[in-house]
């Protein structure tokens, strides 16, 4: 047990006793790491999002594997301090290289805590509008309205302006509709109010507003505002505008297109 291990005449620089103690150390840390990983996940998942609990428990396990390997190497006569120094230098290099990764990871954690968005939310992040498919530890995945997959690093999501379209109960729909100067503003307002009151998705409270907003170059501009339940906002917006156009056509309210009247002055000589 005290002599070095000999394999096919090749002398290894450690004894069976050292190997045995090293393996025991490694197994001990592996088992301890596994138990801790399980416990951390089991209790962590109650307080934290599943993915965070999973990441923390896995990281703990890897740290214990690392300690176990250090223990094994130490038992085999390898100086662990040199490994630690080497590891430290390597860690520093990796640290510099993985600055973005760490930043994304921390941003992911803060996103979980702050929860400005969650899976399934319709959002606009970094100019990408769509539905959040997944928020993992490094990135947020969004499928845009036109079905394109986007992966946005969490660091960007955390530092940018996020528009979450599902956070409120109701959203306001707003149009600006120009009618010709020959059309009756009051009649146009009546028609719009009627269209809104006949639309189930337009809310009774908060109530709708229709008013003359400005006098344009070629049209009287009516501002139309009503509220719709957030999940049905887009449907309400498109339906009501279509119905207003149809009602205006029926009632003879003209929506003018841009036009300019040009007067040509003829000179006396001509």
């Amino acid at each position: 047990m005290t002599s070095n291990i000999d394999i096919l005449g090749f002398q290894l620089p450690f004894t069976y006793g050292q190997l045995y103690s090293g393996v025991v150390t490694l197994v001990f840390f592996l088992v301890l790491g596994y138990i801790l990983k399980t416990l951390i996940y089991r209790y962590g998942v109650r307080a934290l999002p599943k993915k965070i609990a999973e990441s923390i428990s896995k990281t703990t396990f890897y740290i214990f594997i690392f300690i176990g390997v250090l223990g094994l190497l130490g038992s085999l006569g390898v100086d662990p301090t040199s490994l630690v120094v080497a590891g430290g230098i390597a860690g520093l290099a990796i640290g510099f290289a993985s600055r973005t990764v760490v930043s994304n990871l921390l941003s992911g954690l803060f996103l979980y805590i702050d929860r400005p968005i969650k899976e399934g939310d319709p959002v606009e992040v970094e100019g990408v509008g769509g539905v959040v498919e997944d928020i993992n530890i490094l990135s947020t995945r969004i499928t845009s309205w036109d079905g394109v997959f986007h992966r946005i690093p969490n660091e960007k999501v955390f530092t940018t302006v996020i528009k979450n379209f599902s956070k409120t109960t109701a959203r306001r729909v707003e149009y600006r509709i120009g009618i010709s100067y020959n059309s009756d503003v009051d009649r146009a307002r009546e028609i719009i109010y009627e269209v809104i009151s006949n639309e189930p998705l337009a809310l009774v409270e908060p109530g709708p507003q229709v008013f003359l907003d400005s006098l344009g170059e070629y049209s009287q501009v009516l501002a139309v505002r009503f509220w719709a339940p957030t999940p049905q906002w887009f449907t309400a917006k498109t339906k009501v505008l279509q119905k207003i156009k149809e009602a205006f056509d029926r009632e003879g309210i003209e929506i003018p297109y841009p036009h300019r009247i040009v007067y040509v002055r003829e000179s006396a000589s001509s």
Partner: peptide
């Protein structure tokens, strides 16, 4: 009649109701 809805409270965090 046309079924309608209303928000009880603020539009931001109110309760959506059948009116």
């Amino acid at each position: 009649e046309i079924p309608k809805m209303a928000v009880y409270g603020r539009s931001a965090d109110g309760i959506l109701c059948r009116y």
